[in-house]
Design a protein around this nucleic acid. Structure first.
Length: 232
DNA sequence: GCCCAGGGGGCTC
DNA sequence: GAGCCCCATGGG
């Protein structure tokens, strides 16, 4: 691995961490809650997700068996606040049926394999794409895979490391080839990038002057995401 | 009224 | 593999 890039990545992490502190990412009580959250948070803010999870607990359905038991209309109703709720109800149901039927409802048994096999298996399920699969692998199965997302693309494009059209795989490869394999680092690094993406490196009106990365950012704004707006 | 929020499936070429 | 449309709530 290139030592200079590795150093730069650690410096980026240090700069954010010193200003922001630990993120306490993925506030979930159980592994199953991580899975449910990973599916429900697709293109919706976490605030909406917590409400849906509360609803599931209130219904006594926050488990593999619980969700298997629920009717689709009832499940849809409980998670309606998370947008695209009909699709997400199907995603949750199919995931739970799969684990129930193939792994006796035992998530630990499901996770008990090397992370690339687990990834392939997750990707074969309806509604589990790359980011959702990797989030489950890192935050629930606790295996060292680096999670990237649209925030990662935006922040590292503006920092000057990525082209705006870089693929998920290439982003992930970039981090995994230049960082030591470390679950805690991967966990906190992703969390910190997302914090910066949400608070400072926003799409239309980035708050560069307050951003912890301002001093090292080349501010590459190749047409703020939709190709229309101009650089600030 | 507008924009945006921690994607993914399905289709086309 | 890239590009497009669809899904369809809630808060600022």
């Amino acid at each position: 691995m290139e030592q200079s890039i590795k150093k730069a990545l650690l410096e980026i992490f240090r700069l954010i961490y010193e200003k922001e502190g630990p993120r306490h990412w993925w506030p979930a009580q159980t592994k199953f809650e991580v899975v449910v959250g990973a599916i429900l948070t697709q293109f919706v803010s976490w605030k909406n997700v917590t409400e849906a999870i509360r609803n599931l607990y209130s219904e006594g359905a926050m488990s593999i068996e619980g969700i298997c038991r629920l009717s689709q209309p009832r499940l849809q109703e409980l998670i309606r606040c998370t947008r695209f709720y009909k699709q997400k109800a199907r995603k949750l149901k199919e995931f739970c049926l799969y684990v129930r039927d193939r792994y006796r409802g035992d998530l630990l048994l499901f996770f008990d394999k090397d992370m690339y096999s687990l990834r392939e298996e997750l990707l074969s399920l309806y509604g589990i794409g790359e980011e959702t699969a990797d989030s489950i692998i890192l935050y629930a199965a606790e295996k060292p895979i680096f999670v990237v997302d649209s925030y990662t693309r935006r922040v590292f494009t503006r920092l000057g490391y990525f082209h705006p059209q870089i693929s998920y795989r290439d982003m992930q490869r970039f981090f995994m080839e230049n960082l030591d394999e470390d679950i805690r680092l991967f966990n906190e690094y992703h969390a910190q990038i997302d914090g910066v993406g949400a608070r400072y490196c926003t799409n239309r009106k980035p708050r560069c002057s307050q951003c912890p990365l301002d001093s090292i950012c080349v501010k590459s704004f190749p047409g703020i995401s939709d190709g229309k707006a101009s650089a600030p």
